[in-house]
Amino acid sequence: MTPENRAGYWRANLGLLSILLIVWFIVSYGFGILLVEPLNAIKLGGYPLGFWFAQQGSIYVFLVLIFVYATSMNKLDKKFEVEED
């Protein structure tokens, strides 16, 4: 593996990480804590939306984030030919 290739792989990984961690931050700290009051004015079924993000929604989003990461990294591994045998 060439050094350029290695650097490209790492850059792609960091880009993906940043996007996913921004989402991670927004749903939990953003929707669940900082913006909870305005969001509570909106209802999701019987849930105030901010409360729902804090006690349910953020956990579901966390799950999606990890599986998106694992799947995208698999593709990245193949693209840069660094996958395991």
Partner: peptide, 19 residues
């Protein structure tokens, strides 16, 4: 609602762990 810190804190750590 205040207990949300435990719900988010003890699950959100897995995102950090995985990534």
């Amino acid at each position: 609602y205040g207990a949300s810190v435990f719900l988010m804190g003890w699950t959100g750590g897995y995102v950090l762990l995985a990534l």
